[in-house]
Design a binder for these strands. Structure first.
Lengths: 205, 205, 205, 205
DNA sequence: TATGAATGAGAATTCATTCAT
DNA sequence: GATGAATGAATTCTCATTCAT
């Protein structure tokens, strides 16, 4: 016995289908993130990802082009999450100086990364201004940081470009030092490096 | 029938054999370096390396455990080469201040990396003090930088640890910014970033 | 556009796919058995097996972990086949004594193994009670032998354990002697050894 | 500077050279035995053997044709050792019956194999009369067992062939049961199997 | 005799991707 | 949209054997 279902019937456009679809995609994101952070990117196969996500292999290719496609998207999602939260917390406070504001912002990010070392390992080297800027249209958080900085340097007489470069240097330095200090504990644990890093940032600003 | 025994006895260092051996190993290093920098690490197979080197596959495994083994060794070799040369050039000059000395040193490294972008791509952010220190016993260049810094801060009242951390920050920052500026041209080409980086370093010192 | 859905719903047992799948697995079993018995285990490569089976290499690894995995499964399958048939034939006859029943059973097995020397070579001394018992849950034949024996010793006053040990000795001895006599012709061909073996078994019972 | 040594000079025929040679061969035997018993035959490479023996790879091929060549020789050496000792101990005692003599002999072998389970694992399936007989010219122990049996059956009226077959059955059964009981502990540990095996042997004799 | 660097064929295994269902 | 069996090229790695020294 066979049942005929019209392809364009109401059933396939309803919410249930859409929810299921989103569930699968999210499941793939979560699974890939979990495996990338624990096993490493090279040692994670698509088959591992789908197995953990509980979906079929073909489904992966319905939503992502390759392992590196999903990786890029994960990095941007996670980076943006951290930055959005850091911006939000920074904005909800008052500071006597721009310097204090930037240091609070950096401090918050370091705390977040320390809490989640595996994520740090994954986004390492990718949390740089260059990469972030590429996605700034898609992700809110990234653009907001720039605006914060522009406002801070409003009376400095510096050009927009110069401001951006300084911001870049600070973010790059933070990412780099934080990674070394937290993951490699080189040249010292993060608690020892934090004041030295802050001192350097203060001087740069 | 007569056997010829070399003066150094049976356990002698058979020169012909040893030379051939070194030639093969060097050939593997060169071949791997060439392929890693042009095709990328993931897209380079061991069979590619040995084919280019003109040796048998087994020979590779005689000297290296895996692709990542030879990669690590290449990164250390190349990093050390750059540092050794930078140290050598710096020492052969006179400077009116320690600050000038460090900036010359950094400047030389940036020039070298700019000349050889593929190498920069390969050693990427591995040119950090943390990684270097791990190999400092094996590689001369690395230790020499530290000595230069120690001398520079001789009257500063800073402890050895503090000096090392500052050195770490400077090298890390340089590596990170240089990579972005030269390879990604983000946030600006190296010529625009160089004065800003130097300014930051001068402030940190 | 219309989608046909089979009566059993989405989770249905897709017959066509399942049949194809089973065909491939069986083909691998047959191919491996053929090669193991003719070329030997060490000289049979996975690539030989799949080539003969007409499937891709990856398909092998879809169903078996390694060469030794398929070997174990083949040995159990073949051993079970022989035992099932021997049990079946024995049960379909009447005997004046338990001794006669056991000897008929053993005799049938020896005949079967003689007919198929290559199989004997492969399962060699693996046709032992110990190995069989491990698989007795999966394979019917194995359990049935035990039941036959238990019934034979019903009035002997022996414990279950003691019965099992005697059965073990008889099967082990049969397997061992049959192998030597048929394959190695040592110390004499099977026809000369059969009466002596039967005499020994009769004494043991 | 070069020293000329005449190839046929006294130096190369002297005892020192011979001793060194024997040391190397013995070292290879010991190393191979150790590795075969601990890692298994398939998982032992010639390179493992020579490394452990402390000799060069080429040296192995000076004395053995292949892995299976040295394996065969080891099995015969070890089997013969056990049998020689068992025969020696049996002969140095007086027994009231031939049956007692055989059981003592078997008992001694079981004890020896139990002491050295790894050896049992290795020679397993090879300690059969068939194999032993093939080497009886080279190894003393093997021939002596036959003589012992022939003497035991001197007044039985049995032919030489019949005696040999009985001996074969007993040795095969012992080897097989001992292996299962000691290594696999199937169907029961050796201590439980020993009386049942002895009972079976007594009945066969 | 003894060495051990070199070989390279070939073994096992993986995995991204496709496609019929 | 979803599935997962099937593919087979590609890759890593092993190892018995040779041979110049």
């Amino acid at each position: 016995m066979v049942i005929y279902i019209n392809y364009f019937g109401g059933a396939n456009l309803n919410t249930k289908t859409e929810i299921k679809k989103r569930e699968k995609v999210d499941s793939l994101y979560d699974s890939a993130y979990e495996l990338f952070t624990t096993k490493g990117i090279n040692d994670t196969a698509i088959s591992d990802i789908v197995k953990r996500a509980g979906v079929a292999k073909g489904t992966f290719y319905l939503y992502f082009k390759s392992k590196y496609d999903i990786l890029d998207k994960i990095i941007m999602r996670k980076s943006n999450e951290v930055l959005e939260e850091a911006i939000y917390k920074t904005k909800s406070k008052d500071f006597k100086s721009f310097e204090d504001e930037v240091l609070f912002f950096i401090d918050f990010i370091i705390d977040k990364l320390e809490e989640n070392r595996l994520m740090l390992k994954l986004i390492h080297k990718n949390l740089s201004w260059g990469v972030l800027k590429r996605f700034s249209n898609e992700y809110e958080g990234i653009h907001k940081i720039y605006l914060m900085f522009e406002k801070g340097y409003i009376d400095s007489g510096l050009t927009k470009d110069e401001i951006e470069k300084i911001l870049f240097i600070i973010i790059d330095l933070t990412g780099s030092i934080t990674y070394s200090a937290i993951i490699l504990k080189e040249p010292a644990p993060i608690e020892e490096m934090r004041p030295i890093l802050f001192d350097a940032i203060r001087k740069i600003i």
